[in-house]
């Protein structure tokens, strides 16, 4: 690995470490992170392939409430280094390695987020002193710690010899590696289940089965399903008695001078 590749890789690892916590730019999502690692190490096509498969596994790893999900950043970055770098692992081996890495990253993340409780107390004392620069500085420092949480393990992986990694993997029997790649085909259902559990209630379950049957029987593509889904949602919300009862009231009030704030929001949305 050339010095420039290592530097680029560490920048990507650092940014992924910050963004997996921010959950804003989604640089740590496998498809994007693995592609960036592939670009840094000069093997983009393997990076995209690994990223695409890992993305389907990681689809339900969400920051909801105080639950910390498996860590997409460490899983994507380190497995992509092993697949796109000199160790040159196969994509299916990369996926098998990514899962334990996601757990390791999750544990590290829990540790760092506990440490930041102490930093939050320093922020409290800075606030009492009206020290705005101090608060900014601590907030940036916290992000640096989160970035290093991924960048340091990534650096360690780059100095391990590729032969050692390959030797370790070749020692794994075929029934394990083949079984893992078979499981890679359906492990995504865990992610689906997590997303479904977040949204499901008796009112919306039928729409899951409509989608399932249409996808199983027809050959429509995902864009067509997206359009269908939006239309079904719009029609349901329009026709549901629950919303109709309320919207009549709102429409009635809209004509009068004393309009409710709900109309204000509706109007503000219309004006956008």
């Amino acid at each position: 690995m050339s010095a420039i590749s290592v530097i680029l890789l560490l920048i990507v690892a650092f940014l992924a470490g910050v963004d997996v916590v921010l959950d804003e730019w989604e640089l740590a999502q496998p498809l994007i992170a693995c592609t960036l690692v592939g670009l840094a190490l000069g093997d983009v096509s393997s990076g995209i392939l690994l990223g695409g498969q890992l993305q389907l596994i990681a689809i339900g790893w969400m920051n909801i409430g105080s639950a910390i999900p498996p860590d997409a950043a460490l899983a994507s970055i380190v497995s992509a280094v092993l697949v796109c770098g000199p160790a040159n692992l196969s994509v299916s081996n990369g996926i098998a390695i990514a899962i334990p890495l996601a757990v390791a990253g999750q544990v590290l993340n829990i540790f760092v987020r506990s440490l930041i409780v102490l930093m939050a107390h320093v922020v409290d004392s800075r606030a009492k002193a009206a020290d705005i620069k101090g608060i900014d500085g601590i907030h940036y420092l916290d992000m640096v710690i989160q970035g290093l949480r991924i960048a340091i393990p990534t650096y360690i992986v780059t100095i391990v010899s590729p032969q050692a990694v390959q030797g370790a993997l070749n020692a794994i029997p075929k029934v394990i590696t083949k079984g893992l790649s078979i499981a890679g085909g359906f492990v995504v259902v865990v992610g689906f289940a997590m997303v479904i559990n977040m949204m499901a209630n008796n009112e919306v379950w039928p729409f899951f089965f409509i989608g399932f049957v249409l996808a199983a029987i027809t050959k429509l593509n995902l864009i067509a399903f997206g359009i269908l889904g939006v239309c079904i949602a719009l029609i349901y919300v329009k026709l549901s008695p629950r919303f109709n009862a309320q919207s009549t009231v709102v429409e009635g009030a809209a004509g009068e001078e004393t309009s409710s704030g709900g109309d204000d929001i509706d109007r503000a949305l219309d004006e956008l």
Binding site: V188, N201, E203, F209, V213, L214, A215, F225, A233
Partner: peptide
């Protein structure tokens, strides 16, 4: 409600499509 309907519908689509 609208977002949940779209989300559940798409999840239903993905179950047979993105698994092997």
């Amino acid at each position: 409600t609208g977002a949940s309907i779209l989300g559940m519908f798409i999840m239903g689509v993905l179950v047979p499509r993105w698994t092997t």
